[in-house]
Write a protein that binds this DNA or RNA. Structure first.
Lengths: 214, 214
DNA sequence: TTGGCTGTTGAGCGATCACTCAAATCGGAT
DNA sequence: ATCCGATTTGAGTGATCGCTCAACAGCCAA
């Protein structure tokens, strides 16, 4: 009996929780992600963010605390998506090595189609972070490590499935795979023509496929 | 007879030309190179430069015109040194492939020893350059292209020397070599431990050596 | 010495930076 | 209709940005 009253009591707060905000946090974060990814941390000003997020400075600070904190949120968002892609790849049925190889091909194709090609945001953040924003660099490194761990897990699973010999070292293969991916995306950023970009990815992909013992 | 007078006439100007400047241009440029390389274009302020160059703003502008122009000078300096290393490599006696492979090993060792590891300045500049400084990006790309051309010339010479089969494509080999070098130096910047860094370079180097037909 | 030219100085310019806060605005409960 | 509290607003904060320039210092010829 007092249950009903309790619900009535908390209803306003529940409603408030789902009350439509004047801005959509996800949309705003995506806009910030796109902007920061394209321009980098230092070159992006609050004015730029105001335009991209369609929010006034006060609202931005109420919602995200600071430019620094917003960048961290955005970076985490980027990381979660990147790792998500890899997790999906590992949990997919079929040979793991094939999935890893195809991922390289897919990234190259995606970049080739994208008119605004841009290298990995984690790498860019790491390269950009100076002593003044040491935390940004540390975060980016941490995320890159987590992604490498994800790749290593994939190679390890491939090894369990007999797609690799016991002598091959998943940690080292993951290291090389990530280096290749980084290089591939930097070449995309550089503006390498589509054919060469896809050929480069193909070369890397075949090296992954060639790991399989026959 | 009028020759002597001419010399006497121009002597002041000749002396002025070699007159010791209050600052040493080469030293100043090296200091700027080090600073810009470490902090990047956007994160480096005039105050930082004043400190590093030991020059007041007026002198900096008298000598280098602007922060932008100074960065361009410094970038060219960096490029010339990088290309110089490769040119030396190509003109050295002995097998070219061996030289290219050893260069990868040497870079890894150099980075491992360097406490302030830093990725290639041209790559960093390219990744950092926004629409506002499109020229910086274009310059960096141009320099990277020139370096790739240098690598390609090395592979081509190796091919002429019979170190490569006729079927192998120097352009593509150069592309991959440069990608590997980029990735290697980014891993160095990332803070990859010395052993792993050197192992990564070794793997890349052996792939170059394996190109040789036997 | 003196005059003249070169190169240095550093206070200070307007613009822009990240950021704040008092006032206006809005949705929902009464 | 009226009020309340949450949210948005945007002019404005001090700090710092890249950069300028009138005044000054040092050197050499005369």
């Amino acid at each position: 009996m007092c249950g009903a009253r309790d619900i009535r009591l908390f209803l306003p707060y529940l409603l408030r929780m789902i009350r439509a905000r004047p801005y959509d946090r996800d949309v705003a974060l995506d806009a910030a992600l796109s902007l920061f990814w394209r321009k980098g941390y230092h070159a992006t000003s609050l004015k730029d963010l105001e335009g991209a997020l369609q929010m006034k400075p006060g609202s931005i600070y109420a919602a995200f605390d600071s430019k620094h904190a917003l960048y961290l949120s955005v970076l985490e968002r980027y990381f979660l998506r990147s790792r998500g892609e890899l997790k999906a790849l590992r949990e997919r049925p079929g040979p793991i090595l094939q999935g890893l190889a195809d991922h390289l091909r897919a990234v190259a194709r995606r970049e080739a189609d994208d008119p605004a090609r841009s290298a990995c945001m984690l790498v860019r953040t790491m390269l950009d972070a100076t002593a003044g924003e040491a935390e940004l660099g540390a975060r980016a490194r941490g995320y890159l490590d987590a992604i490498r761990a994800e790749i290593e897990a994939a190679f390890r699973k491939a090894q369990e499935n007999g797609e690799l010999t016991k002598a091959q070292d998943p940690a080292r293969l993951a290291q090389r795979y990530q280096s290749n991916m980084t290089a591939l995306r930097i070449e995309a950023h550089r503006g390498l023509d589509d054919a060469a970009l896809i050929a480069l990815a193909e070369e890397m992909a075949q090296e992954v496929e060639a790991l399989r013992p026959n």
